[in-house]
Amino acid sequence: MRDFVYNAHPARVIFGSGTLTRLPEEIERLGLSRVLVVATPEQDADARRIKDRIGERAAGIFAGARMHTPTDVTAKAMEVVTAERIDGLVAVGGGSTTGLAKAIALRTDLPQIVAPTTYAGSEMTPILGETENGRKVTKSDPRILPEVVIYDVDLTLTLPVAMSVTSGMNAIAHAVEALYAREANPIVSMMAERAIAAIAAALPIIHDRPDDRDARSEALFGAWLCGVCLGSVGMALHHKICHTLGGTYNLPHAETHTAVLPHALAYNADAAPETMQALRRALSTEDPAGTLFDLSRTLGATMALERLGLPERAVDEVPDLILANPYWNPAALDRYALRRLVANAFSGHRPSAG
């Protein structure tokens, strides 16, 4: 076995069904008395129910979280944090809500309790992607990592099928890149392979039976592992492309990851033979990139970036944006090859075997 370094991040995880009932005791355990509940505008009613559940320790609600964590939204939330003398954060929702809580924690070091309702996985990472002036910048800091994560399978039972599919594929993307990351190690790779297998098997069941508790549990468990993978090792081309598309063109996060993943994987296939071997085992296929594309499309995901709102000019712009500030990647970054990747994802063409 080759030498490796494994960094574990401290976080308290509570996993199961009905576990959100433990939220008040977790707030008490952390010694918090003026908690801010964070949500998106669409989740305002949910946030109010959470506030009622918390009781007198809830000092307010900020239901203004937005996709890609714009810094102007964070600034508005910080005004509430200051005015209400907030000493802790509760985020119940998807990646947008978690992102805002993380952005506040980065600026204040306030403790966070996160209860995910999707399979985003970002709750398990000390990583934050913030957008300002059309540019998304990724930061890593111990203050960003939530102190407590409550995984309640019940919260995912009503997650719409379309969102379940793209959120699950987004999680798989974290694990795929963890397999070929520069800091890859046997511990993270073991989790990544298990996570990919769990989510890939669960999503077709969720598609047919959205209230299947066992499938939802497997998907949420896999998302947890994918998040650990994302937080433990670096990111590569796939995440660079998606950060560029999201920050510059405001494309939807999970849907973009879903459409790009097969193409980024095909790009790196020849340079990452061990990753491809692990994916063949996890997905029971000889063509992992094509299989992920087919699985997503069969489950109803949009596989053409054009249909997600990407302008055609981006096919030429994105490669230059990537090369201007590239992430490490197992395969060398070549502008012609990158343009072909983006063009195929733009049109929704199935990637070649790899």
Rank of each mutant, 00 (worst) to 15 (best):
Y119L: 14
S122Q: 10
M124W: 09
T125N: 06
P126H: 04
I127D: 00
G134L: 14
V137M: 13
V137Y: 06
V137A: 10
K139G: 06
P142R: 13
Y151C: 11
L157C: 11
T158I: 03
L159W: 02
V161L: 05
V161R: 15
V161N: 04
A162F: 12
A162C: 00
T166M: 12
A171R: 04
A173W: 08
A173E: 05
A173G: 05
A175L: 08
A175E: 02
E177V: 05
L179D: 09
L179W: 10
Y180D: 02
A181D: 03
P186K: 14
I187L: 14
V188N: 02
E193K: 12
I196P: 00
I196L: 09
A198W: 01
A198C: 08
A200F: 03
L203Y: 01
I205P: 02
I206P: 11
H207C: 10
D208T: 15
D211I: 01
R213G: 08
C226V: 02
V228T: 08
V228S: 07
G231I: 09
G231V: 03
G231K: 02
G231C: 10
S232I: 12
S232L: 13
L237I: 15
H238V: 11
H238C: 08
H238I: 08
H239T: 03
H243Q: 12
T244I: 15
T248N: 05
T248K: 15
L251R: 02
L251S: 03
P252C: 00
H253V: 07
